[in-house]
Amino acid sequence: MSVSLITSVMRRDTQAARVVPPSGVTARLTVFVAAIMAYLAVFALALSLSAGRLADRWSDELAQTATLRITAPMEERTAQTRAALQILRQTPGVAEARALTQDEQAALLAPWFGPDPVLEGLPMPQLIELRAGTPPYDPAGLRARLAGEFPGAVLDDHSRWQAPLVRAADGLRLMALVSIALIVAAMAAMITLAANASLASNAQVIDVLRLVGARDGFIAQGFVRRFTWRGFTGALIGTGLAVASVVALPDMAEDGLLTGLAFEGGGWLLPLLVPVVVAMIAFVATLGAAQRRLRGAL
Protein backbone atom coordinates (compact mmCIF):
# COMPACT_ATOMS: atom_id res chain seq x y z
CA MET A 1 0.00 0.00 0.00
CA SER A 2 2.76 2.39 0.98
CA VAL A 3 4.44 2.70 -2.41
CA SER A 4 1.21 3.42 -4.25
CA LEU A 5 0.31 5.77 -1.44
CA ILE A 6 3.56 7.68 -1.85
CA THR A 7 3.13 8.05 -5.59
CA SER A 8 -0.47 9.13 -5.27
CA VAL A 9 0.44 11.65 -2.58
CA MET A 10 3.05 13.11 -4.92
CA ARG A 11 0.44 13.82 -7.58
CA ARG A 12 -0.88 17.08 -6.36
CA ASP A 13 -4.34 17.42 -7.79
CA THR A 14 -6.42 14.31 -8.08
CA GLN A 15 -10.08 13.93 -7.44
CA ALA A 16 -9.43 11.72 -4.45
CA ALA A 17 -7.76 14.69 -2.80
CA ARG A 18 -11.08 16.48 -2.63
CA VAL A 19 -12.81 14.00 -0.37
CA VAL A 20 -11.20 15.68 2.64
CA PRO A 21 -12.75 19.10 3.08
CA PRO A 22 -10.37 22.03 3.11
CA SER A 23 -10.01 23.22 6.68
CA GLY A 24 -8.91 26.79 7.23
CA VAL A 25 -7.26 27.33 10.59
CA THR A 26 -5.70 23.88 11.08
CA ALA A 27 -4.19 24.01 7.62
CA ARG A 28 -2.71 27.46 8.11
CA LEU A 29 -1.34 26.55 11.54
CA THR A 30 0.28 23.41 10.17
CA VAL A 31 2.00 25.40 7.44
CA PHE A 32 2.99 28.06 9.97
CA VAL A 33 4.52 25.59 12.45
CA ALA A 34 6.26 23.68 9.67
CA ALA A 35 7.81 26.95 8.52
CA ILE A 36 9.03 27.80 12.03
CA MET A 37 10.43 24.33 12.60
CA ALA A 38 12.22 24.37 9.26
CA TYR A 39 13.68 27.80 10.08
CA LEU A 40 15.02 26.50 13.40
CA ALA A 41 16.25 23.29 11.79
CA VAL A 42 18.28 25.22 9.20
CA PHE A 43 19.89 27.28 11.96
CA ALA A 44 20.69 24.21 14.00
CA LEU A 45 22.15 22.68 10.86
CA ALA A 46 24.31 25.74 10.22
CA LEU A 47 25.40 25.73 13.84
CA SER A 48 26.36 22.09 13.82
CA LEU A 49 28.36 22.48 10.59
CA SER A 50 30.11 25.59 11.88
CA ALA A 51 30.90 24.01 15.23
CA GLY A 52 32.24 20.98 13.42
CA ARG A 53 34.47 23.18 11.28
CA LEU A 54 35.68 24.99 14.39
CA ALA A 55 36.54 21.80 16.20
CA ASP A 56 38.39 20.45 13.17
CA ARG A 57 40.31 23.64 12.68
CA TRP A 58 41.38 23.90 16.28
CA SER A 59 42.44 20.33 16.57
CA ASP A 60 44.29 20.41 13.22
CA GLU A 61 46.13 23.68 13.41
CA LEU A 62 47.12 23.46 17.02
CA ALA A 63 48.10 19.84 16.84
CA GLN A 64 50.55 20.53 14.06
CA THR A 65 52.84 22.81 16.01
CA ALA A 66 54.54 22.42 19.37
CA THR A 67 57.17 24.29 21.29
CA LEU A 68 60.17 22.92 23.15
CA ARG A 69 61.48 25.22 25.85
CA ILE A 70 65.05 24.66 27.05
CA THR A 71 65.98 26.21 30.34
CA ALA A 72 69.62 25.75 31.20
CA PRO A 73 72.57 27.80 32.35
CA MET A 74 73.83 30.08 29.60
CA GLU A 75 76.98 28.09 28.90
CA GLU A 76 75.13 24.81 28.32
CA ARG A 77 72.23 26.23 26.41
CA THR A 78 73.72 26.29 22.97
CA ALA A 79 75.00 22.76 23.27
CA GLN A 80 71.67 21.52 24.64
CA THR A 81 69.79 23.29 21.89
CA ARG A 82 71.92 21.68 19.25
CA ALA A 83 71.52 18.25 20.85
CA ALA A 84 67.77 18.72 21.19
CA LEU A 85 67.46 19.72 17.56
CA GLN A 86 69.36 16.61 16.61
CA ILE A 87 67.03 14.41 18.62
CA LEU A 88 63.97 16.12 17.22
CA ARG A 89 65.15 15.71 13.64
CA GLN A 90 65.69 12.01 14.23
CA THR A 91 62.28 11.56 15.83
CA PRO A 92 59.82 10.00 13.41
CA GLY A 93 56.76 12.21 12.91
CA VAL A 94 58.55 15.51 13.37
CA ALA A 95 58.57 17.29 10.03
CA GLU A 96 60.57 20.29 11.00
CA ALA A 97 62.40 21.60 14.03
CA ARG A 98 63.90 25.07 14.23
CA ALA A 99 65.43 27.08 17.01
CA LEU A 100 63.99 30.56 17.27
CA THR A 101 66.53 33.36 16.90
CA GLN A 102 67.06 35.94 19.61
CA ASP A 103 65.17 38.49 17.54
CA GLU A 104 62.19 36.21 17.09
CA GLN A 105 62.03 35.50 20.81
CA ALA A 106 62.24 39.21 21.57
CA ALA A 107 59.41 39.81 19.12
CA LEU A 108 57.26 37.25 20.95
CA LEU A 109 57.83 39.09 24.23
CA ALA A 110 57.42 42.55 22.75
CA PRO A 111 53.67 42.75 23.52
CA TRP A 112 54.49 42.46 27.20
CA PHE A 113 57.82 44.29 27.58
CA GLY A 114 57.79 46.74 24.71
CA PRO A 115 60.19 46.98 21.80
CA ASP A 116 63.12 48.18 23.88
CA PRO A 117 65.82 45.60 24.34
CA VAL A 118 65.42 45.45 28.10
CA LEU A 119 65.80 41.73 28.18
CA GLU A 120 69.29 41.53 26.80
CA GLY A 121 71.58 39.79 29.15
CA LEU A 122 68.78 38.12 31.05
CA PRO A 123 68.83 34.35 31.01
CA MET A 124 66.03 33.60 28.60
CA PRO A 125 65.01 30.05 27.80
CA GLN A 126 65.62 28.91 24.25
CA LEU A 127 62.50 28.07 22.23
CA ILE A 128 62.45 25.43 19.54
CA GLU A 129 59.47 25.34 17.22
CA LEU A 130 58.60 21.99 15.80
CA ARG A 131 56.04 21.01 13.23
CA ALA A 132 54.46 17.57 13.22
CA GLY A 133 54.48 15.44 10.11
CA THR A 134 52.06 12.78 9.07
CA PRO A 135 51.72 10.56 10.93
CA PRO A 136 52.51 12.82 13.88
CA TYR A 137 55.06 11.99 16.56
CA ASP A 138 54.08 10.51 19.89
CA PRO A 139 54.17 13.41 22.41
CA ALA A 140 54.41 11.18 25.47
CA GLY A 141 57.36 9.23 24.08
CA LEU A 142 59.17 12.36 22.94
CA ARG A 143 58.57 14.00 26.27
CA ALA A 144 60.01 11.01 28.14
CA ARG A 145 63.09 10.93 25.94
CA LEU A 146 63.72 14.67 26.27
CA ALA A 147 63.20 14.55 30.02
CA GLY A 148 65.93 11.91 30.26
CA GLU A 149 68.48 14.01 28.40
CA PHE A 150 67.55 17.56 29.35
CA PRO A 151 65.90 17.85 32.74
CA GLY A 152 65.04 21.51 32.14
CA ALA A 153 63.28 21.01 28.81
CA VAL A 154 59.53 21.39 28.51
CA LEU A 155 57.58 20.20 25.48
CA ASP A 156 54.36 22.13 25.04
CA ASP A 157 52.17 20.58 22.34
CA HIS A 158 49.26 22.97 23.09
CA SER A 159 47.07 20.06 24.10
CA ARG A 160 46.54 21.67 27.49
CA TRP A 161 44.44 24.48 26.07
CA GLN A 162 43.56 22.93 22.75
CA ALA A 163 41.61 20.05 24.27
CA PRO A 164 39.02 22.16 26.15
CA LEU A 165 38.46 24.28 23.03
CA VAL A 166 37.87 21.23 20.90
CA ARG A 167 35.62 19.77 23.59
CA ALA A 168 33.62 22.99 23.65
CA ALA A 169 33.24 23.02 19.88
CA ASP A 170 32.30 19.34 19.87
CA GLY A 171 29.76 20.03 22.61
CA LEU A 172 28.29 22.83 20.55
CA ARG A 173 28.00 20.52 17.56
CA LEU A 174 26.35 17.84 19.70
CA MET A 175 23.87 20.38 21.05
CA ALA A 176 23.02 21.47 17.54
CA LEU A 177 22.44 17.86 16.47
CA VAL A 178 20.29 17.21 19.54
CA SER A 179 18.31 20.34 18.65
CA ILE A 180 17.71 18.96 15.16
CA ALA A 181 16.50 15.68 16.65
CA LEU A 182 14.20 17.59 19.01
CA ILE A 183 12.87 19.69 16.16
CA VAL A 184 12.13 16.51 14.20
CA ALA A 185 10.35 14.99 17.22
CA ALA A 186 8.35 18.17 17.88
CA MET A 187 7.43 18.33 14.23
CA ALA A 188 6.20 14.73 14.23
CA ALA A 189 4.22 15.31 17.43
CA MET A 190 2.68 18.49 16.08
CA ILE A 191 1.64 16.92 12.78
CA THR A 192 0.22 13.92 14.63
CA LEU A 193 -1.87 16.25 16.79
CA ALA A 194 -3.06 18.22 13.78
CA ALA A 195 -3.83 15.03 11.85
CA ASN A 196 -5.74 13.59 14.81
CA ALA A 197 -7.74 16.79 15.08
CA SER A 198 -8.46 16.67 11.38
CA LEU A 199 -9.45 12.99 11.51
CA ALA A 200 -11.73 13.65 14.47
CA SER A 201 -13.43 16.63 12.91
CA ASN A 202 -13.90 14.67 9.69
CA ALA A 203 -15.48 11.63 11.33
CA GLN A 204 -18.49 12.00 9.04
CA VAL A 205 -16.29 12.04 5.95
CA ILE A 206 -14.63 8.84 7.12
CA ASP A 207 -18.01 7.23 7.85
CA VAL A 208 -19.38 8.14 4.45
CA LEU A 209 -16.30 6.91 2.62
CA ARG A 210 -16.38 3.68 4.59
CA LEU A 211 -20.07 3.23 3.82
CA VAL A 212 -19.57 3.54 0.09
CA GLY A 213 -16.75 0.99 0.12
CA ALA A 214 -13.56 3.01 0.44
CA ARG A 215 -10.56 1.05 1.60
CA ASP A 216 -8.43 2.34 4.48
CA GLY A 217 -5.66 3.23 2.09
CA PHE A 218 -7.96 5.50 0.12
CA ILE A 219 -9.27 7.25 3.22
CA ALA A 220 -5.80 7.67 4.73
CA GLN A 221 -4.47 8.96 1.43
CA GLY A 222 -6.72 12.02 1.47
CA PHE A 223 -5.42 13.08 4.87
CA VAL A 224 -1.82 12.06 4.25
CA ARG A 225 -1.73 14.08 1.05
CA ARG A 226 -3.04 17.18 2.79
CA PHE A 227 -0.56 17.11 5.62
CA THR A 228 2.42 16.10 3.51
CA TRP A 229 1.89 19.07 1.21
CA ARG A 230 1.20 21.43 4.09
CA GLY A 231 4.39 20.32 5.83
CA PHE A 232 6.39 20.59 2.64
CA THR A 233 5.03 24.03 1.76
CA GLY A 234 5.61 25.41 5.24
CA ALA A 235 9.09 23.93 5.44
CA LEU A 236 9.97 25.38 2.04
CA ILE A 237 9.00 28.85 3.22
CA GLY A 238 10.85 28.46 6.52
CA THR A 239 13.96 27.09 4.83
CA GLY A 240 13.98 29.93 2.32
CA LEU A 241 13.78 32.52 5.08
CA ALA A 242 16.43 30.80 7.17
CA VAL A 243 18.88 30.50 4.27
CA ALA A 244 18.30 34.17 3.47
CA SER A 245 19.03 35.01 7.10
CA VAL A 246 22.24 32.99 7.11
CA VAL A 247 23.37 34.69 3.90
CA ALA A 248 22.57 38.08 5.42
CA LEU A 249 24.76 37.45 8.49
CA PRO A 250 27.91 39.61 8.41
CA ASP A 251 31.03 37.73 7.36
CA MET A 252 33.33 36.85 10.21
CA ALA A 253 37.04 37.25 9.63
CA GLU A 254 38.37 33.80 8.97
CA ASP A 255 41.50 34.29 11.03
CA GLY A 256 42.18 30.64 11.57
CA LEU A 257 40.54 30.21 14.92
CA LEU A 258 37.01 31.50 14.40
CA THR A 259 34.36 30.75 11.81
CA GLY A 260 31.11 32.42 10.92
CA LEU A 261 27.67 30.80 11.18
CA ALA A 262 27.35 29.72 7.58
CA PHE A 263 27.32 26.87 5.15
CA GLU A 264 30.34 26.17 3.02
CA GLY A 265 30.51 24.58 -0.40
CA GLY A 266 28.31 21.49 -0.60
CA GLY A 267 26.89 22.39 2.80
CA TRP A 268 24.58 24.81 1.04
CA LEU A 269 22.68 21.83 -0.35
CA LEU A 270 21.83 20.52 3.12
CA PRO A 271 19.03 23.04 3.84
CA LEU A 272 17.32 21.80 0.69
CA LEU A 273 16.84 18.50 2.47
CA VAL A 274 14.82 20.15 5.24
CA PRO A 275 11.50 20.48 3.31
CA VAL A 276 11.91 16.93 2.02
CA VAL A 277 12.51 15.58 5.50
CA VAL A 278 9.59 17.58 6.92
CA ALA A 279 7.36 16.19 4.16
CA MET A 280 8.51 12.68 5.06
CA ILE A 281 7.80 13.28 8.74
CA ALA A 282 4.35 14.62 7.89
CA PHE A 283 3.70 11.62 5.67
CA VAL A 284 4.65 9.06 8.31
CA ALA A 285 2.96 10.90 11.18
CA THR A 286 -0.33 11.35 9.32
CA LEU A 287 -0.33 7.80 8.00
CA GLY A 288 0.23 6.52 11.53
CA ALA A 289 -2.54 8.69 12.94
CA ALA A 290 -4.96 7.65 10.19
CA GLN A 291 -4.20 3.95 10.57
CA ARG A 292 -4.63 4.10 14.33
CA ARG A 293 -7.95 5.85 13.91
CA LEU A 294 -9.31 3.57 11.19
CA ARG A 295 -8.25 0.37 12.89
CA GLY A 296 -10.63 1.11 15.74
CA ALA A 297 -13.72 1.30 13.50
CA LEU A 298 -15.71 -1.52 11.95
Partner: peptide
Protein backbone atom coordinates in the same frame (compact mmCIF):
# COMPACT_ATOMS: atom_id res chain seq x y z
CA UNK B 1 -24.74 11.44 5.37
CA UNK B 2 -22.78 13.00 2.57
CA UNK B 3 -19.52 14.79 2.05
CA UNK B 4 -20.98 18.19 2.73
CA UNK B 5 -18.28 20.13 0.91
CA UNK B 6 -18.85 18.39 -2.42
CA UNK B 7 -21.78 18.97 -4.77
CA UNK B 8 -24.53 16.41 -5.05
CA UNK B 9 -23.29 14.95 -8.32
CA UNK B 10 -19.89 14.11 -6.89
CA UNK B 11 -21.49 12.67 -3.79
CA UNK B 12 -23.63 10.35 -5.86
CA UNK B 13 -20.54 9.31 -7.82
CA UNK B 14 -18.46 8.81 -4.65
CA UNK B 15 -18.67 4.98 -4.72
CA UNK B 16 -17.13 5.07 -8.21
CA UNK B 17 -14.38 7.38 -7.06
CA UNK B 18 -13.41 5.28 -4.04
CA UNK B 19 -13.31 2.13 -6.14
Amino acid sequence: QFLDHLPLLENIAMPLLVS
